[in-house]
C-alpha cells in the first residue's frame, strides 16, 4: 500500500508490455493482479507444487518464487500466449482431446512445462516426460492422460498424423 509502484518493460506473450506494481510483488502476482492474466494459477505460493509455472526466456520457472522486478527486459510466456491465430497449440489440442485437463487448475503449468520440454526434445520418451513434469502436481488425472497428451502433441508437431490410442480412451478390450 505504502510502497511506491515501480514500472518495468518486458515481453509478455510476444508483446512489449509495461506494467506498474508494488516492488515486493512476485511475477505470479504481477501477472494475475496487474496484467489481468489469471490463467496462471497458484497452489501454495511457496514453490512446492509447480502450479504457477510460466516460461521465462523459454525456461519453466515458478512465478511464485520470481520477483516481478527481476523480469524487466525479459521474455515471459503464460498459457494465454499459447494459442495463436485463433488456433489451439498442439499441446492444448491434445490435452483437450484426451481429457488431460480434468479440473484444469494445474493445466496451464503442465502445458508450459511440456512446451519447454518439446522445444528441446522433439521425441521425448515416457521417462523423459515424467522427469520433465516431476515438479508439477496434479491431483485429478494420475498424470497418465497428461503423458499421453504430450506424446500425441509431440507426434503431431513432428508432422505425424497421430490420433489417441483406442486403449487410452476406451480401456483395454
Amino acid at each position: 500500500m505504502t510502497d511506491p509502484k515501480v514500472t518495468i518493460a518486458f515481453e509478455l506473450n510476444g508483446e512489449l508490455t509495461e506494467v506498474a506494481f508494488a516492488p515486493h510483488k512476485t511475477l505470479l502476482e504481477v501477472l494475475r493482479e496487474d496484467c489481468g492474466l489469471t490463467g496462471t494459477k497458484h497452489g501454495c505460493e511457496l514453490g512446492e507444487c509447480g502450479t504457477c509455472a510460466v516460461l521465462l526466456d523459454d525456461q519453466p520457472v515458478l512465478s511464485c518464487l520470481a520477483l516481478g522486478l527481476a523480469c524487466s527486459g525479459r521474455r515471459v510466456k503464460t498459457v494465454e500466449g499459447m494459442a495463436a491465430g485463433g488456433r489451439l497449440h498442439p499441446l492444448q489440442e491434445a490435452f483437450a482431446e484426451l481429457g488431460a485437463a480434468q479440473c484444469g487448475y494445474c493445466t496451464p503449468a503442465f502445458l508450459l512445462t511440456a512446451e519447454a520440454l518439446l522445444a528441446g526434445n522433439r521425441t521425448p520418451t515416457r521417462d523423459e516426460i515424467k522427469q520433465a513434469l516431476a515438479g508439477n502436481l496434479c491431483r485429478c488425472t494420475g498424470y497418465i492422460k497428461i503423458y499421453e497428451a504430450v506424446e500425441l502433441a509431440a507426434a503431431r508437431m513432428r508432422g505425424e498424423a497421430a490420433a489417441p490410442a483406442d486403449e487410452s480412451v476406451y480401456g483395454r478390450r
Binding site: 493482479e33 494465454e80 489451439l88 490435452f95 483437450a96 485437463a101 496451464p108
Partner: peptide, 23 residues
C-alpha cells in the same frame, strides 16, 4: 463414445474463471 468435454478449450487456454480469478 470418447468425447472432448464442453469446458476443455476454456481449461487449456486458462480462460476458466476459478473463484480466486474473480476481481
Amino acid at each position: 463414445k470418447a468425447h472432448r468435454k464442453l469446458d476443455a478449450t476454456a481449461k487449456v487456454t486458462g480462460v476458466t474463471k476459478f473463484a480466486d480469478d474473480l476481481f
